[in-house]
Design a protein around this nucleic acid. Structure first.
Lengths: 214, 214
DNA sequence: TAGATTGTTAATCGATTAACAATC
DNA sequence: TAGATTGTTAATCGATTAACAATC
């Protein structure tokens, strides 16, 4: 069977659907129509139906969608029906903040190690996960099965570490360093560029201050 | 003069152009053509020229673009030619990590205060900025001119705080809480949804594991 | 059964790419 | 001047919205 190609735009929307369905679930909402959901989410009902039908028919004519079922199914599509082992490279403020973020575990993402170049940090523990020297990383990856590495280190160090990680078999990189990583094809990179996000906010603020006279 | 509407797709790309031009500037590159830049950035030269020409002609036929000039101009478009005062609401790990991120100041974003509901944190200082009780927020905003509030607090508390901030005159919200804020029109919200970013990575990892057989 | 709402096709809209005349 | 490369128009491609037959 020829699997349909899913556009990036659709994938970007899936986590948001998942979040809204999770919220509805918490409120014990049993069913929802694309129209109701579209009003809550501020998108068109048509878009919701198109998006979902990329993955199959989850609804029922005349009824709508069962919230719990749809939530579960989107979770499966997003790969949230399994567990992931994570490591954090860079035990600075951001790395430590991520390590402390308990919510990830609720979603099946388990932090297995934190690494840094700074020997002074070694031995410190965050929620029971001890900080290790980055020299131990290769060995650690031989012994532990790790799926994802979060990169919270300076831009200058990111490319080398990323290519090492790729070499040592890491499949996913969650990159917080303000640079693009050019890696081999079968390593997935997801970027979080905080500075760029802040610039977008700045753009929107400036734009509003001198509004277009259309 | 009728100002052209700039699409969201273009705005999203501007910070990346800015970053690449900054990198070139550091390497003392004086000029670059859309073709060269397109190869570095992995986009089409046509897209670069189209994007830039939304804002005016920054290049010169037969020559290309002057790196420093283009960098400066994109900076202006992004509103980086001015200063912004920031506060952080929520002095948890993420809030503290942001407060410690010196790089923002280099770009003109100055952290003026950190607020939290937890009285135990009050009095603590991060890089000279003391943590205050959130009850003091309204008064603080009367005395201090603040442009942007970063929201690093739990989802449940975010909507109320956000609407207070809007009421007290904040113009931009940098939202890290995993929820959509529905605010009055003239308040700009820029979201950073870390959990959703991680889900996208998870999706891409799952997809690659069971690759489409096209 | 009648009403509601999906799944899906068709129409529209917008964004990207290609092409090339203008011009440095 | 000849060559290079922009700025810009036209063509293509893809994504969103509208419409409606299918069906619960």
């Amino acid at each position: 069977m020829q699997k349909k190609h899913i556009s990036k735009a659709v994938i970007n929307r899936l986590p948001r659907y998942y979040r809204y369905l999770g919220d509805l679930l918490e409120k014990d909402v049993v069913r929802i129509s694309s129209k109701e959901l579209s009003e809550k989410m501020n998108v068109t009902a048509s878009q919701i139906r198109q998006d979902l039908n990329n993955f199959g028919g989850f609804g029922q004519q005349g009824y709508g969608y069962n919230v719990e079922y749809l939530h579960t199914e989107i979770g499966k599509i997003l790969g949230l029906d399994r567990k992931y082992n994570l490591i954090i490279i860079g035990a600075g403020n951001l790395g430590q903040a991520l390590a402390n973020y308990v919510d990830f575990e609720r979603r099946g993402f388990f932090i297995k190690g934190i690494f840094d170049v700074n020997p002074k940090l070694v031995g410190l523990s965050i929620r029971g996960i001890e900080i290790r020297l980055i020299d131990e990383l290769e060995e650690f990856l031989k012994v532990n099965q790790v799926d994802i590495a979060a990169l919270t280190l300076p831009k200058a160090k990111a490319p080398k570490v990323a290519s090492d990680l790729a070499k040592w078999g890491i499949k996913g990189i969650w990159n917080f360093a303000p640079t693009d990583l050019h890696l081999v094809e079968n390593v997935i990179v997801e970027n979080v560029h905080l500075a760029e996000s802040l610039m977008k906010l700045s753009y929107k603020l400036s734009e509003q201050q001198y509004p277009s006279d259309k």
